[in-house]
């Protein structure tokens, strides 16, 4: 058995104080607040058979919610990849009046409570809202359709792309531009062949994080989603619905799918990022 004493004992002598204290606080917190609650999910699921578990997570209404959630999240992430790249580029490369304001505005979706974003978007895009009134005559329905779900997802996750691409773009030396242009490349070619390869890892990471966040988002979506079974129900809402029916096992089974997918994606993003950093720094880091 590993005790605190033999962890500290086996390590080389430490100069700085506080190892025991900070290890104690961190481990207590991580086990009580993070790991222990997670185990309750498995405790709840251990009571049912594998067939039962499979039946719950492949129920028609639940599967429809996976499709809606993943589809809308994919659209939102792709839109954000383009929009985020444009904003990061403009914020890093150009000077214009109101730039600081635009930069600050980028963090709004993280600072604004999701429920506030939810009711605001629902009100704006409903048929008598400011945006809805403009879009309705064109036959574009946003509120209470999957487009609204994608919109809410895109709103809450845009900072991920901007804030991951921005620092990489800032660190790119001007010589890169100059070399490409001196050699006669057009702007578009130079961007695609020279700049984009540098930004690619950050762009994929940011888009991936935005996608993961969209998969789990709840507060911003439920108000604009309409929540019609089989059509505009997201998976997070399915968990919520099962809970309101006091079906704890059903809620846990669906939650375990959501949890597994988000953790797997997060791990994949970390590995992808780690591999790229290794390539950049020649095996270090």
């Amino acid at each position: 058995m590993i005790t605190l004493a033999n962890i500290t004992g086996s390590a080389p002598k430490r100069v700085l104080p506080g190892f025991g204290l900070s290890l104690g606080i961190s481990l207590t917190f991580v086990s009580l607040m993070l790991l222990l609650p997670m185990t309750s999910l498995f405790g709840q699921l251990s009571g049912i058979s594998l067939a039962e578990y499979w039946r719950i997570i492949t129920d028609g209404r639940v599967v429809a919610s996976y499709i809606v959630t993943i589809g809308a999240a994919a659209v939102a992430a792709l839109v954000n990849a383009a929009f985020g790249l444009l904003l990061a580029w403009v914020l890093v490369r150009y000077d214009f009046p109101g730039k600081r304001l635009l930069d600050a505005l980028m963090d709004l979706p993280f600072a604004l409570p999701t429920a506030v974003a939810g009711i605001t978007l629902a009100t704006l895009y409903s048929s008598n809202g400011w945006m809805g009134r403009l879009l309705d005559p064109l036959g574009i329905q946003v509120a209470y359709t999957w487009v609204g779900i994608a919109l809410a997802m895109a709103f809450t996750s845009i900072p991920f792309v901007v804030r991951t691409v921005q620092p990489v773009l800032e660190d790119l030396p001007n010589e890169v531009d100059e070399a490409a242009l001196t050699l006669g490349a057009s702007d578009a070619t130079a961007f695609r062949r020279v700049i984009l390869p540098h930004l690619w890892p950050a762009l994929v990471t940011g888009t991936g994080l935005a996608f993961v966040r969209s998969l789990g988002e709840f507060g911003a979506i439920i108000f604009i989603a309409g929540n019609a079974p089989y059509e505009t129900e997201i998976t997070a809402l399915m968990i919520f619905v099962r809970l309101q029916e006091y079906d704890y096992v059903g809620a846990s089974a669906i939650a375990s799918v959501v949890l597994a997918v988000s953790l797997a994606l997060l791990l994949a993003i970390n590995i992808w990022q780690g591999r790229f950093i290794k390539r950049l720094h020649g095996g270090r880091g």
Binding site: L34, L36, L215, F218, G219, A236, A255, L265
Partner: peptide, 20 residues
């Protein structure tokens, strides 16, 4: 491990606390 709360859907976070 400390990134878990960022990856977990808030509804799932609430659920695991409710279960325990």
């Amino acid at each position: 491990l400390i990134d878990i709360p960022f990856a977990v859907s808030p509804v799932v976070a609430g659920l695991v606390y409710l279960l325990l």
